[in-house]
Design a binder for these strands. Structure first.
Length: 284
DNA sequence: TATGGCCTGTAC
DNA sequence: GTACAGGCCATA
């Protein structure tokens, strides 16, 4: 699923491909995709796209005083309309899975999403919009200390499992299930550990590992575990570097003699090595 | 703060 | 057939 590295890959590619182009038309195929009470798609017609940015897992198309904010959720993909990976019958049948098209003067993009969870939102006041989402500071901003301070300030007050905490976008933003599991494995922390029983040094390690693993994944253009593809329909290649995610019953790549376990935490599957990530309460 | 709903393709 | 995948939001 698209998490920070996958979204960043799409954003970088979009920036190269369509920045400064004129948006000729937005064609809404599935009305459910569009979120705004008054700002209609036609309002964007003829506007020049300034640049494409990322905020957390959201894609931001900046048209100056108005914006499109897109979320791919689990199975959403932005694809060049001639990418071979778009099932031909879907296009032909005009299925709702082809949710909308962005037609620029030189390029046509389709928002294809089999599960139809993704969204496109017309936004005027970006700051207010993201404030309402209560997103934590960006991990890779010019002021990286902000995100760490924000994280450390919040983690003392919750006894939730640490896995739930790092999926909480208001505490640290960008991670999803894949990189949360990978970061906890690198940090040697069991995903069920109550958040407020971890030492400050362990929290700093988790934070640093999350940042590191997602940076590595960006360099590999993301992880295609199930659905994710880039604009051209190509997969990301970070999957081969995953050490726990979706590796239940396989040998741990770190200790090489323990099989990866999978448990449910807060409704999500969590993968961990019981030897490298023993369950311990370190303080009380 | 935990849970169910949104969705549908895939795996069993 | 049925369970499962999970990011976000509304709800209790």
């Amino acid at each position: 699923m698209p998490e920070l590295p996958e979204v960043q890959t799409v954003v970088s590619d979009l920036q190269e491909l369509v920045a400064s182009q004129t948006l000729e038309k937005i064609v809404i195929n599935d009305p459910k995709v569009w979120f705004h009470s008054s700002l209609q798609p036609k309002y964007f017609t003829g506007r020049q796209l300034r640049h494409v940015d990322r905020r957390g897992k959201y894609i931001v198309y900046n048209f100056g005083d108005i914006h499109l904010v897109q979320h791919l959720r689990m199975t959403g993909k932005m694809l060049l309309s001639d990418a071979k990976e778009i099932p031909h019958n879907i296009i032909k049948a005009n299925s709702l899975q082809l949710r909308l098209k962005l037609i620029f003067n030189n390029v046509e993009l389709v928002f294809y999403d089999p599960r139809r969870f993704g969204t496109m939102t017309a936004v005027i006041d970006l700051d207010a919009y993201f404030k309402s989402k209560q997103l934590a500071p960006e991990l890779y901003s010019n002021e990286p200390q902000l995100a760490l301070d924000h994280y450390l300030a919040k983690v003392d007050y919750s006894n939730r499992p640490i896995k739930s905490t790092i999926l909480d976008q208001s505490i640290i933003c960008g991670a999803g299930n894949i990189y949360a599991d990978e970061a906890l494995h690198r940090a040697g922390v069991h995903p069920s550990t109550p958040t407020n029983t971890l030492l400050s040094s362990q929290h700093q390690a988790i934070f640093a590992h999350l940042k590191e693993v997602m940076r590595e994944a960006i360099l590999k253009r993301g992880t295609s575990a199930a659905d994710y593809l880039d604009l051209n329909g190509n997969p990301g290649v970070f999957k081969q570097y995953l050490k726990v995610y979706k590796r239940k019953d396989e040998l741990c790549k770190t200790c090489d003699r323990t099989r990866i376990c999978r448990i449910k935490i807060a409704g999500r599957s969590s993968h961990y090595c019981p030897k490298c990530q023993p369950f311990t309460k370190t303080n009380d």
